[in-house]
Design a protein around this nucleic acid. Structure first.
Lengths: 232, 232, 232, 232
DNA sequence: TATGAATGAGACTTCATTCAT
DNA sequence: AATGAATGAAGTCTCATTCAT
């Protein structure tokens, strides 16, 4: 997993080279798929980008379809891991509720906007008709897990009396919806990276609305948000 | 020879035939594109589905790309019109705020789940890399307009003192985000139609959260929602 | 044949219109064929250039192949007529032998370089494989007749003792060869019109060589050619 | 792997096979192009004639247009080389002027009538509109070079006092024109091979006229040509 | 007669995949 | 294990030609 190593490590050099080729293929494939889409991506492009011969791809990954599946699931898993790490910032004390949630929202948006994450999401939707099982599988191992984890955190806060949450899963989904809000509109096209300042505003506003709706303590009026007031 | 007539006149059968073919082509194209995607859709399929010869498609629409553009924009415009009609149900009196918004949310979700609407949205995202201009154009003439219209309605309610809305456009986006919530997860894959009951629940919960966050009057606790309480 | 007339002539207007269309088609076809060649020329182009509908071409000319044959033979006949007229300048007196031949050569080159003539010749060679009979027919009714006529003139001069010509047909062919010389190289590509000055030089030089070879009287050295010397 | 070897080595059979295929494609293409012309020639025909699959042509030559360009220039270069070899027969002594020139003329006509040479010339003219650059390139590297070489030989003879040549390039062009004379008429159609006897006569007569015009020594009358007279 | 519309056939080109080295 | 070469299948698009008005 630690990249950046040169050849002489524990593994036999031959095996090293083999693994390197495989990694080069997968990374090149993700780039090419992201750039031009599944159907438009030809194995010639991928082979060229990876610096290998076309049959080598078949030797390692079997077929174009299998290569796509592998690239998608592997990349999605990586993205998923990063998203789950975000929850480590989740606030446990009532006093840091708002800044904690804003931190989570901020990092979440950053995850969402990560180039690879965007690419996988776009490809997944794009090819949902051709690979419905892949769509479901990635969904189940990615966002669904995250929603569950987030719901757990919210439930804990509710139990502690800090939030008024009836259905934690629904609340988790709403939190995500509010935080992401119009992200698709801002940058889903995939070519343009979204404007970080707007993203920040959207995230903060999403947290604000969420707290207004769910916080048990009174929430400061909008204009005075973020100035260290004790509640929200 | 006399052009400029609308459909329900004594137009010559010939002209009827021409229009019929064109309509058949466009409708068949939408179906096929929705079914297998842009690249996978061949003009052979579309021609067969429309019951015309392949060159006839070129006579009418010029090229595959142009056909796609035409189908997308036309269908999106139709969907957009329906969405705007939904706003006619928007509540103007404080007393009907919650049922009115729920009505809007319900109809909105129905629009969103309309088969053609789903298909266009999916295709748009799927081909955002190949047709970025189309993505933007449809977005501008569709969702963006709707957000503006909704923001106007919310601003009016805020002026009347019924809602506490600082940024109407942001609030409109949040309303939509809350109401749609996890719709993509539920049915975006396009093959499976989403479960109407779940949709209804999501919409109602979304309205509830929205009112909690923005309503000036106190909002009843979640469990007692929908029982005719005067406010929210 | 006299063009440039307006509608009201002896023929019925209807018939006039019909003939006009036919003429328009044929002229447009020649232009289009000359511009892009036989295979590359589509009936759509020709119809557009002629300002008629495609089926009208079929009504008048039957098929693309027939249209081509008709255009070629008609245009070749016109070119041929012009070439034969050139021989009227042919010198009959010994005293005007050189200027007369130069005049003929000059006009001949002009004929050869006529846009339509070039086009027909090029198209004929280009499609010689597809239309060998057309190639032969045009050749027989055009150049062959001209060679015969020129051979007759040369024979007359020979009989009068002004030229030493054994085989008049061969001499005629050589005269033509010398006068045209490198015309193909200069402008046969068809796109570029040949440089008139060079053509003039080639023609004069060709006549000079011809006279050196065939004239019974001594011929002035090259440098003093064209200055009114009595012979050649 | 070691490239840069010529054919007759211990090259691996694989490499042999590759070169063989390429050669087969090019040769088949020339045959097919010559038979039916550029546009009418389909890659299916060429592939069948070469005994390879259609994509193999693309692997080697890239496109139909490129294949055509390659075939034309390669074949033209070969023809050009043969023509230049002809000049080795060019006479340097005055005593062998006529038989030497007749020899050159004879070989030149043979070159000109070579099947491949005819085909290239015909195709070049036929597609001059579509490939004007190809027309010019072949012309520049072929006939133009030959004219220059011939002009040089003539100039040498002129310097030695055997010919009266003012403009060697023009004289060279005239020599060629006289020798080829009506070759186009005789066989340019490409289907029929020209009659060798007629060709021989034309060539000899062309040389005769050339010598009459340019030889410094008196030239024997036509009827006695070819009987070993010392001059001309 | 003239035309808008429609079509069957066929061309060029690309691609995922396999074979032999 | 890796590759250069080859291929069968399929797709977009064009065109000459005909039908019905």
């Amino acid at each position: 997993m630690s990249a950046g190593e040169t050849e002489k490590t524990t593994a036999a050099p031959a095996e090293r080279g083999r693994l390197d080729k495989r990694r080069a293929i997968v990374e090149a494939a993700l780039r090419v798929f992201a750039r031009v889409g599944y159907t438009q991506a030809s194995l010639d492009m991928i082979a060229a980008e990876a610096g290998v011969a076309k049959p080598t791809i078949y030797n390692h990954l079997g077929s174009k379809e299998n290569l796509f599946r592998y690239v998608m699931t592997e990349t999605a898993a990586r993205s998923n891991g990063k998203a789950l790490e975000v929850l480590e910032s989740f606030p446990s004390e009532a006093g840091k509720l708002r800044p904690g949630l804003e931190d989570v929202a901020h990092k979440l948006v950053a995850c969402y906007c990560d180039e690879q994450s965007q690419a996988v999401r776009r490809l997944l939707y794009a090819e949902a008709v051709r690979f419905p099982d892949l769509f479901d599988a990635v969904r189940a191992s990615g966002p669904d897990q995250f929603v569950e984890a987030l719901a757990g955190r919210l439930a804990r806060l509710a139990n502690a009396g800090h939030l008024r949450v009836e259905d934690p899963v629904r609340a988790a989904n709403q939190f995500i919806a509010l935080v992401y809000e119009e992200l698709p509109a801002l940058g889903m096209s995939g070519t343009r990276p979204p404007d970080p300042k707007q993203l920040e505003k959207v995230a903060v506003a999403g947290v604000d609305t969420f707290l207004r709706a769910f916080c048990t303590a009174p929430v400061a009026p909008r204009g005075e948000r973020g100035n260290g007031r004790p509640i929200g």
